[in-house]
Design a protein around this nucleic acid. Structure first.
Lengths: 214, 214
DNA sequence: ACCTGAACACCGTTCAAGT
DNA sequence: ACCTGAACACCGTTCAAGT
């Protein structure tokens, strides 16, 4: 808590990330971050420009936790593993996916983007498929995680309770949704959906390259 | 502006949506919404519970603008058209995609979800593919739009300028990104990326059904 | 160079008072 | 039933003063 080492940008970002992990990004306040570090608010402004810039820095700290992709293996396996690593990190910092598209990329994210593009380029998919594939893959990583977290948070802790309440109240009006909710509840194993959908995209990219080639 | 009809939940939501469209959701304030309607702040609380609930209502207003899917045609065509309609609406209200995963679904969104599930169910893909397909499709609609808007907003109005500045400064350090940025800048037509990636997903779902069917 | 007290212009929300 | 003045506990940020 109140460790009285001198303040620094890095210590501020770390404290802010921890706070957001624990209390959510909506509760994040310059004053709360300063409190956690046992300094007064205004001191923060000696090391970060303002709250927006601090949030950009926080996201880049998180992106820095994503392991760089493997240097060998089939491109699809490498891509799947790298996406899984990103997914794990974004699941650990539940506020981060929501910030992803709002913040300009910092140094860690630039390197991350570069690594994704490298995988796709070295797969020799052709420039057009690389271009579109990059957007498709990053969209999936961030979008899927965001959706997953959204489910958890809006349904709250008592997931089962909420779901069965929905089934009783509105199940008759929304038959297809009722069926879907039953799918969420049931003990049926849906496997790794994140990897499954990414697989569809990667296979599709592969196939559309073949079409272009031949 | 200051039309002095009596206040109502619906008028408040409409005014708030207009304000967010014009100035962004970060600038949205209870006081500003009240000002736009020529009432005082506190009056809003007679019609909406609080700011969070107002935002949920605003998102549901936006979802209500999405045309319901066609009742005939191949399931992929229907899905593509419905997704395009949603994409158009979310592009018109640039703040909405970012709220999507944060807000509990309102009545319009429940009907929207139901319509997506109906399309997939009637396509006879099998329960497992319907379950995963629903997540994949909604993820794509919201995630892709979010990413598109993020590009626009972080790059700002002077897109070309920013991009060529990046190319000169960091092009050497990030060769793959440099190539990608050139793709964004060039006059090469990339076609409808939104539809293209959704196509990969829909074809993949179709194919994985065939596999399951055996 | 870095920390901070005081201050400013704003927030969301409540509550009692009006009509 | 709906509107509102006053107030409360908070914000982000600036600036001049301290060391």
């Amino acid at each position: 808590m109140g460790s009285r080492q001198p303040l620094s940008r890095s210590r501020i970002l770390d404290a802010a990330v921890s706070f957001a992990d624990e209390h959510g990004v909506d509760a994040l306040t310059m004053r709360k971050v300063a409190d956690a570090l046992d300094f007064r608010v205004m001191s923060l402004y000696n090391h970060v420009a303002n709250k927006q810039e601090m949030l950009s820095g926080m996201l880049d700290v998180v992106v820095g936790e994503i392991d760089p992709p493997a240097t060998e293996g089939s491109w699809k396996d490498v891509m799947q593993a790298s996406a899984a690593a990103a997914h794990a990190v974004l699941s650990r910092h539940k506020w981060a996916a929501g910030e992803w598209s709002k913040r300009p990329p910092g140094p860690h994210r630039l390197r991350y983007i570069e690594s994704i593009l490298r995988i796709l380029t070295e797969a020799e998919l052709g420039p057009e498929v690389v271009y579109r594939g990059y957007h498709a893959v990053t969209m999936h990583i961030v979008g899927f995680t965001l959706q997953e977290i959204g489910y958890e948070e809006t349904l709250g802790d008592n997931l089962e309770e909420m779901a069965s309440a929905f089934l009783e109240e509105m199940g008759a009006d929304y038959p297809y949704m009722a069926e879907h909710v039953r799918g969420h509840l049931g003990d049926h194993d849906h496997g790794d959906e994140f990897a499954f959908v990414l697989g569809l995209i990667l296979d599709g990219l592969d196939r559309s390259t073949c079409k272009t080639r031949g």
